[in-house]
């Protein structure tokens, strides 16, 4: 049996009095690419932010349920969110380079973790940029400010920045929502290549992207996990009428 890297059990989340998630449960195997789809406001981003504990940064929130990474509860007492976030990387919806050079953006995470030796960093930066299919375009521009890259390049830089951490899990929050179709295809190609080596959870509001990418597809609607299963089954034979409405474009 395949080992489950990420297990979410009965997860509920509240911003003050507003409930964002209702007892969401699912499992993602090691090296699997799971796509969480759903319309805007369905709790997809909240779900991702619970997995790397970025939601800890908000005040006045409440959480119920458990999230296990390799069998360990990431919210257990004594678990350090900083250490967790080094294992669970995140790519945000808006491509945002830090106000640093291309090189320093990729080296940011490893430096925080104390890996600052020049040679080691050089190799790590090149390896990460290659893995993010960006090396050929920026090899001669490593010292340039990262904001000079195009939007699509900036998003691949964000992926390289995460890969440089050598994480186990990569979370992507609508990573192509601000990109043109060509850049979107490049990112999707890249993610298909990364699946297998990394456990990937991608969030999207575009059912067609879910169909193109997903091995496993989850449909989140107004905080409820309505349906989950292999992509082929969810798209060809959805069990819930709300899933049918979403994938046929009537909702969302």
């Amino acid at each position: 049996m395949r080992q489950h890297r990420l297990v979410v059990e009965g997860l509920s989340f509240y911003y003050g009095a507003v409930r964002a998630l209702y007892r969401v449960s699912f499992k993602v195997g090691a090296g699997e690419l799971a796509v969480v789809m759903g319309p805007t406001g369905s709790g997809k981003t909240t779900l991702l932010r619970c997995v790397n504990r970025l939601c800890d940064l908000h005040g006045r929130t409440r959480r119920e349920g458990r999230i296990l990474l390799d069998g360990r509860d990431i919210y257990a007492a004594g678990t350090c969110p900083t250490t967790l976030r080094r294992r669970v990387g995140m790519v945000f919806a808006v491509p945002t380079p830090l106000p640093l050079s291309v090189y320093d953006n990729v080296a940011y995470g490893p430096r925080l973790a104390g890996r600052g030796r020049r040679q080691e960093l050089d190799a790590l930066v090149e390896e990460s940029l290659r893995a993010a299919a960006l090396w050929d375009e920026v090899a001669g521009r490593l010292r340039e400010p990262a904001f000079r890259l195009s939007g699509g390049q900036q998003q691949r830089l964000a992926i390289a920045r995460v890969l440089a951490m050598r994480p186990e899990v990569i979370l992507l929050d609508e990573p192509t929502s601000g990109l043109d179709p060509v850049s979107t295809l490049r990112i999707e190609e890249l993610l298909r290549g990364l699946a297998g080596s990394y456990t990937i959870v991608l969030v999207t509001n575009n059912p067609r992207q879910a169909a193109r990418l997903g091995a496993k597809v989850l449909f989140l609607y107004l905080g409820h996990l309505v349906e989950q299963g292999p992509a082929r089954q969810v798209f060809s034979n959805p069990r819930d009428p709300r899933t049918q409405d979403f994938i046929s474009g009537r909702v969302g």
């Binding site: 790397n52 970025l54 940064l57 990387g89 945000f92 945002t96 925080l112 920045r161």
Partner: peptide
């Protein structure tokens, strides 16, 4: 967003 990126990278 800059802060969140830094935190998300284990800062």
């Amino acid at each position: 967003s800059w802060r969140e990126i830094s935190y998300a990278l284990g800062g």
